[in-house]
Simulated scan of single mutants.
Amino acid sequence: MRDETSTGRVTLAQVASQAGVSLSTVSKVLNGRPDVSAPTRGKVEELLEAHGYRRSSAGAPEAPLIEIVFHELDSTWAMELIRGVQNVAKETGLSVVLTETGTRHSPGADWVEGVLRRRPLGVVLVFSTLPDDLKKKLWSRAIPFVIIDPAGDPEPDVPSVGSANWAGGLAATRHLLDLGHRRIAVITGPEDMLCSLARLDGFRSAMGMAGVAVDPALVRFGDFHVRSGRTHAAELLQAPDRPTAIFAGSDLQALGVLEAARVLNLRIPEDFSLVGYDDIPLAQWSSPALTTVHQPLVGMAEEAARMLLRLRHTTPPPPPTDTPRPLPPTPTDQADTRIEFGTRLVVRDSTARPPGQRG
């Protein structure tokens, strides 16, 4: 096999010669085999990178798999994303493999070595960032990847699918303001995640435009899970001047708020109003049914999977488009590698006017 470089062409035999190893050792590194020492692997990887090596996807044996990577896999929210990827996999005769990396938002070198051995058609990462060295390893093996809701601001060369988090936070807060609430608390996600910060920024913007000061004591950072919603809500609702409304940055956190209210014998929306985020299936079946911000999780995952299949035929990964996409997006060419879906408020039974303002 011959490999394209920026200055000409180089064979794998030449890479082996320059590294002082056998051709079979270079092949082992390319295939992610574990039986190569770390120093040798590093030397070969450096030479492959220096020569701009990129394996031809047409010539590489691939498993008929799409791999989806979560740092945590324990919620209905995750199941919606899996369902979206699975929908596309079924359409194209592929299978789906799941990987859980733990609490890290950036999967490590051990993960990427496993991917090189499995050699899927592509990888969907959720709430992740990818260091440059991992990106280069995937690109060099012609394994495309797409990130759903990147943990940080993705670089221009990183394909991603997200939703309008700022607009969602704005809509949720405006709804509460329009009902007459002024003392509004927010329980968002982790401080190091772009989507949770964007939802918080939308909350702050709505409050600012309404001329309502944000009380720092009412701003809480959680982890998007039930337990953090329950813990923060219990503290907020037992304060002397408790909020009349809570905006939870995820439906799971909102379910935690519901549990805290039950323990404290508080009624929703009679004693305080509650808005969630995501519109997972459980939201409409909670008691009361949850007012929430809908983001199309299944559609986002479907688009990420379709983007992977398009990127398989693209060398190198294309630059992002600066043109806003229609919502829901209908990709028209391989340059569509940064897509943002719209969000919308779904009003149900968990919101009402504040106590004392009802006629």
Rank of each mutant, 00 (worst) to 15 (best):
R344S: 12
R242F: 07
M79V: 08
P331H: 09
R267K: 14
E113T: 14
I82Q: 12
G229L: 10
R204Y: 06
Q86P: 05
H175T: 13
E155M: 02
D192G: 00
A60W: 02
L134Q: 08
L134F: 03
E235L: 08
R54A: 15
H232F: 07
N31E: 02
R267V: 13
L177K: 05
D241E: 15
D201C: 00
T5D: 08
L48Y: 11
N165R: 07
V124N: 07
T40H: 04
D278M: 00
L345V: 01
V15F: 03
R182K: 10
K43H: 13
H225I: 06
L266T: 15
L94I: 10
E270I: 04
D271V: 12
R262Y: 10
L176G: 15
K28M: 06
V293S: 07
R174V: 03
N165L: 03
V146A: 09
D192A: 04
L48C: 08
P216L: 00
P318W: 10
R182F: 03
H175W: 13
P131G: 06
V161F: 01
V112T: 15
G20A: 03
R306N: 09
L23A: 01
V29P: 11
T129S: 14
T11C: 00
A301K: 01
A198L: 13
V257S: 14
L48S: 09
I184K: 03
E235H: 08
V298C: 11
E259I: 00
D74F: 00
D223M: 00
S6I: 11
L266Y: 12
T7K: 09
V219W: 00
P320D: 05
A151R: 03
D157V: 01
G108A: 08
D178Q: 13
L255T: 14
A248S: 15
N87L: 03
N265D: 15
V44R: 09
